[in-house]
Amino acid sequence: MLLLGSAVNCLAIIAGSFSGIVLRNITEQTKDTVTKGISLGVIALAIQMSLQASSFIIIIISICLGGMIGEFLKIEDSMTRLGLFLENRFARGNNNFAEGFVTATLIYVIGSMGIIGAIESGVSGNHQTLFTKAVMDGFMSIMLTASLGIGVLFSAFPVLIYQGAITIFASFIVRYLPPELLDSLMNEISAIGGLMILAIGLNVMKLTKIRVSNYLPGILVLIIIMVVQYFYF
């Protein structure tokens, strides 16, 4: 099922939101413990993904060039400004529903893990990254709903639409690639995605403050390098 990963992610947010309604009195210490537990799982997944690379030289070149492009385009800053705009526009005053909806949507949608996972789902049918994101978002929705209310639940639907659209687009593009190139691309995309997800895990653990979104152009750089290498070398 093409959209299985996105659908599971959506359902996890809904389930977590209902749980958050029941578990209203979650302590800050519990939130911190759960969040760090999620981070450990994300780091383990990232290491597993990054080890799939057949050429770390290409991965390093792609992520460095992608980071330079991302910094030039200020992708991370643009995402932050978008988040602040939406929060100021829709989450003003005491409207807890709007605040919960916007805050949760920003957390679940604006990030690299959903993009990487959606691409993997569309290209190879591998939903592991989105399943992991579903676990993260599910636990996060418990904590957000306990704090901000039922509006968090409705953030599940933008997540489904956003990730689903990327998955469908990726599945369309993949039809025009030779099977040998596709296999190589998926290994390398998983590897570079693993490095980005590792950075997310370290950020959530508050060990680093890596501007992960600025590395996203690295995926495009990687694809270009792999295609040129396949057809011309």
Results as ranks from 00 to 15, higher is better:
Leu4Trp: 02
Leu4His: 08
Gly5Glu: 01
Ala12Gly: 10
Ile13Gln: 00
Ile14Leu: 10
Gly16Tyr: 07
Ser17Asn: 09
Phe18Asp: 08
Gly20Asn: 03
Ile21Tyr: 07
Val22Trp: 01
Thr30Ile: 11
Asp32Ile: 00
Thr33Gly: 11
Ile38Met: 08
Ser39Val: 00
Ser50Val: 01
Ile58Asn: 14
Ile59Gln: 06
Cys64Trp: 05
Met68Lys: 09
Gly70Leu: 03
Glu71His: 13
Phe72Val: 12
Leu73Pro: 13
Leu73Lys: 09
Ile75Phe: 03
Ser78Cys: 14
Ser78Trp: 10
Leu84Lys: 14
Leu86Tyr: 02
Leu86Pro: 13
Asn88Tyr: 08
Phe90His: 05
Asn94Ile: 00
Asn95Tyr: 02
Phe97Thr: 00
Phe97His: 04
Gly100Gln: 02
Thr103Lys: 15
Thr103Cys: 14
Thr105Arg: 01
Leu106Met: 09
Ile107Phe: 13
Tyr108His: 11
Ile110Leu: 14
Ile110Lys: 11
Ser112Ala: 13
Ala118Gly: 11
Val123Thr: 13
Leu130Lys: 02
Thr132Lys: 09
Thr132Val: 07
Val135Asp: 06
Val135Pro: 12
Asp137Tyr: 04
Phe139Arg: 04
Phe139Ser: 09
Ser141His: 03
Leu144His: 04
Gly149Arg: 11
Gln163Tyr: 08
Ala165Tyr: 06
Ile168His: 07
Ile168Cys: 07
Leu177Gly: 11
Leu181Asn: 03
Asp183Leu: 14
Leu185Asp: 05
Glu188Leu: 02
Ile192Met: 03
Leu195Gly: 08
Leu195His: 09
Ile200Gly: 08
Leu202Ser: 11
Asn203Leu: 01
Thr208Gln: 11
Tyr215Val: 00
Tyr215Glu: 00
Pro217Ile: 00
Val221Met: 04
Val221Leu: 05
Ile223Ser: 11
Ile223Gly: 05
Ile224Pro: 15
Gln229Gly: 04
Tyr230Val: 00
Tyr232Ser: 13
Tyr232Arg: 06
